[in-house]
Design a protein around this nucleic acid. Structure first.
Lengths: 386, 386
DNA sequence: GCGCTTTCAGAAAGCGCTTTCTGGTAAGGT
DNA sequence: ACCTTACCAGAAAGCGCTTTCTGAAAGCGC
């Protein structure tokens, strides 16, 4: 969902009345009233509890208790401490708190491939909503699909002693990566860290929110067969992603149940451009075109739709097209895309809930299966000539 | 971009071969090989540097130096420390490190209204890419447009001693809020914290990446006038957002330059639904329809486009429609939307660069102006009957 | 061989908090 | 009036690191 790819764009020379300097140029530096303390090179340190206690004329311990309300503190003292804290703009140092107190800190880590991808954005939104309700801060990292970066992030989150680490998106089917990831996660879990994932590799023994990719794809296949289609192609993603493998397998199963064999699989990147390229490749092949195409994700389907339109293939009259995930954009395109709907926001809420819930029993991991619903929209119809 | 709103959807009863339990039901608990240490109720604590030092038979100080490479350590000792650290799966406690060492920690805070909104997702993506290059962890928070939550997050980030706090999106034009925000930010900045914003309120004296909303909207207006339009309406957002005010004012200016007065402003929420509702409201009004509508954000424009389609209004034949931002989805809809393009990813990269760069001079704040480019696409054309 | 610098490991002092532990004072019991 | 209890403020001990400071051992010129 990055490049133009279709539709003519006209960028007029005209710039309007208030044309400005080219991007990247600093236009102004504004003078700000400077606090006397600020002028010195070394910035004033953060206000500490010690300063608050001194200001209030009480001991450190009393100040701490007054602010946290852990133990009863005489009202007048508490008042003085509160006032002093306000006056000085005191904020406790979370690092010191985390160090000193037994209870873990209030951050959870969330690792996804790309926040820009609506699939991840949807899940991340759910995680954040749930986190906000519990006063948790979310540390979000994008791996940009680099396995090494993912492991590096887990390591950083471990260092932060994040209360939980959430991994969103397919794991890499790569022995070395799996081992490295395990090596990071095992000591973390052993030390009481919580891990939960959305659709990871099966070998990972952690709490999982697992979309029913296989069943969903099979159900979609059955629905498409019911529309009259017999001749299918799949636009697939990187086969090392478990999600891709599952959806492909499920789609094959669904077809097989009707005695149909999948004719063609074209592989592309897991992006809009990947879907676009895969669709072009499919069309370029000389042989007879399938009547129906399934792209393993909506993001790819959107790219494919653009490619079909550019090639003059009408959807669904000449060819039906379906995706998977039900990201918001599929309702905006024309025709709106048939897909398998996943409750993304809810999945995000579930995965953080899973992670935060007290472990059910030592050594047990839970799997929460999320059913996908086939949603038929305008992009699918009866095959041509029927 | 959440509700169905258009297009008929058919959810077939058919569920496919592998129908599963309803969402929310735990299907399985898998047995995991349990490490002996894990069985006890209290989880084994995290491995500490002390443990590593003892394992390696050196002092704490030496272990620290060996791992950080701050000072020369005899090769054999260093080797032993490294080996011990690996063996035990040691990860330094970032909190302790932050507390002990003068140099700030490696996290930056990013506060936006909603990660699910493509505008913010685009900018956040840029921030994360830049952060990744510098080994920084991003703490991302969504305010869901609640001013109180925004302030609470700043407070949390202050507590975390985040190296920088990035605020994305319009500030609230509300005196109380401004004062509260200032009260949070002032001590943070005074203590050496860095703050940078994308398009905030003018009163905030911090480094700013400022899209040229006014000029962009004016340029857009001029372009639309050039197409022949004389009769305009604007679908506006909450007027207390500075971005809205600027774009509306700029659009008015652009029209005024051609001697045209804006006929109608309909206000809606800053979401797809807001745009949808505003467009409906516009159409419902009995008086003559404008020939061209400007929605102050693309997200609203997408909603408006759906509303127009539902009402049978053809775009651009009956009515032209334009937005602002150039989020990815506007290229996917039909017709693709005319808009003012903002380099979202780059803006994200710029804002974090601005924050991390050493302050130019005490008490100076920089403003980096980002020019928007008018991009004419299929959603705009000549007015009907011309 | 003596005093010098240089190198580098270990001891110890914090960083800013929380949480015992300790002890002083006021209230209550006999 | 004396002793127990209860209550609550302050002292002090860490949490897990980094970074002085200290001092032992080694290298060097004379």
């Amino acid at each position: 969902m990055t490049a133009p790819a279709h539709g003519q764009e006209v960028v007029p020379k005209f710039r309007g009345p208030a044309t400005t300097a080219p991007l990247g140029v600093e236009l102004s530096e504004r003078e700000t009233p400077v606090h006397p303390d600020t002028r010195r090179r070394a910035p004033a340190a953060h206000v500490t509890l010690d300063a608050v206690a001194r200001e209030a004329g009480v001991s450190l311990a009393t100040a701490s208790r007054a602010l946290n309300g852990t133990t009863r503190v005489r009202d007048d003292l508490r008042g003085r401490v509160r006032a002093a804290a306000d006056l000085l703009g005191y904020i406790p140092n979370a690092h010191a708190q985390a160090l000193a107190s037994a209870e873990g800190n209030r951050t959870v880590g969330l690792i996804c491939h790309d926040v820009g991808d609506p699939y991840f954005a949807g899940i991340a939104g759910g995680v954040m909503r749930a986190a906000a309700e519990q006063d948790l801060l979310v540390m979000l990292a994008s791996t940009f699909r680099e396995p090494a970066r993912e492991i590096a992030y887990v390591s950083m989150l471990r260092a932060q002693r994040a209360r939980a680490i959430l991994l969103i998106g397919s794991g890499f089917q790569d022995r070395a990566w799996e081992r490295a990831m395990d090596a990071e996660l095992e000591p973390y879990v052993r030390a009481g860290g919580r891990v939960a994932v959305v659709s990871r590799h099966r070998s990972m023994r952690v709490d999982t929110v697992q979309p029913e990719n296989r069943a969903g794809a099979a159900a979609l296949a059955a629905s498409l067969v019911a529309l009259g289609h017999r001749d299918f192609a799949v636009l697939s993603g990187p086969p090392e992603l478990t999600t891709v493998a599952d959806r492909l397998a499920g789609f094959r199963e669904g077809l097989a149940a009707a005695g149909i064999t999948l004719r063609r699989v074209v592989q592309g990147a897991f992006t809009r451009e990947g879907g676009h390229a895969a669709a072009r490749q499919l069309l370029a092949a000389g042989d007879a075109r399938p009547t129906c195409v399934f792209a393993v994700t909506d993001v790819m389907a959107v790219g494919a739709l653009a490619a079909l339109r550019e090639a003059g293939v009408r959807v669904p009259e000449d060819m039906s097209l379906a995706g998977f995930d039900d990201i918001p954009v599929v309702r905006e395109v024309s025709p709106p895309l048939t897909t398998v709907a996943l409750p993304l926001t809810e999945m995000g809420e579930q995965v953080i809930a899973l992670a935060l819930r007290t472990p059910s029993r030592a050594g047990r991991s839970r799997v929460l299966r999320i059913e996908g619903n086939v949603v038929l929209r305008g992009s699918t119809g009866a095959p041509p000539g029927s």
